[in-house]
């Protein structure tokens, strides 16, 4: 992976809220096309770090570069070069499938002609031709999540951040979602993903585990399992987070 281009570089990333240290000197690099899993117990500091990497929050200290831009001074450039999707916030339920695509295309600064082309391709690919004029609130969660992901990468960002994208999704759709993640990563986009499903941690190229604001492990799933004498990532996680 070392010959690949660096897309995220964090050295000493620290964020304090008063006396509370949410992120304590995090050091990590993420490469182009990599599927990077970001794990940790609730409250370990994952969301704080993701907000900083997305240009939504300024760190207290550290040298951090995302998609070639500085997180202190170039947050607007960062935002236009990344995609973001979470379980909680993704699409507007009171707009139709088609309207959501148009809206986000506009937000990402795509031209109308380009939006129309991409919209047609996207709707066909996801098999939503009949539902295109239906409200988002009426389509099943699994489809919604796949659509939200497709929209998050519509402007061809260098990195896409997925914050618990498969929470509550049925086991078939969850796997179809990972098929999409692989596809995107093969096309060269970096995928930065959080999940509470430990089997999904196995699908990542590398996994970073956080605990109480610090990185406690960062390696490939194979190496982590070897080092912690564990059968699977669930055992690794429980051994580390205990």
């Amino acid at each position: 992976m070392n010959d690949k281009q660096l897309v995220i570089s964090a050295k000493g990333l620290t964020k304090k809220f008063g006396d509370f240290v949410a992120n304590d000197h995090l050091d990590f690099d993420v490469f182009q096309g990599e599927i990077f899993g970001f794990l940790g117990a609730n409250g370990a500091g994952k969301t704080t770090a993701i907000k900083i990497l997305c240009g939504l929050s300024i760190p207290t200290s550290g040298d951090i570069n995302v998609a070639g831009y500085d997180v202190y001074t170039e947050t607007e450039q960062i935002k236009s070069n990344i995609g973001y999707m979470s379980q909680r916030f993704s699409l507007y339920p009171d707009l139709t499938v088609s309207e959501n695509i148009r809206f986000y295309g506009g937000i990402y600064g795509l031209g109308w002609k380009e939006i129309k082309q991409k919209r047609k391709k996207l709707i066909e690919k996801l098999g939503l031709v009949e539902e295109r004029n239906g409200l988002i609130s009426d389509i099943p969660l699994g489809w919604k999540q796949k659509l939200a992901f497709s929209i998050a990468i519509m402007h061809e960002p260098k990195i896409v951040f997925l914050d618990e994208p498969t929470g509550g999704v049925d086991p078939v759709t969850r796997r179809m979602f990972w098929d999409m993640i692989y596809e995107v990563s093969e096309s060269g986009t970096t995928v930065f993903v959080t999940t509470h499903y430990m089997d999904e941690a196995e699908y990542c190229n590398r996994v970073c585990i956080m605990d109480e604001g610090k990185i406690v492990a960062l390696d490939t799933p194979e190496e982590l399992k070897r080092n912690y004498h564990a059968q699977n990532m669930n055992e690794v996680f429980i051994k580390i987070a205990r």
Binding site: A41, F237, I238, R242
Partner: peptide
């Protein structure tokens, strides 16, 4: 769904 969105250890 008491454990939705909860990490593996807390679950």
């Amino acid at each position: 769904e008491p454990t939705t969105g909860v990490d593996a250890v807390s679950r």
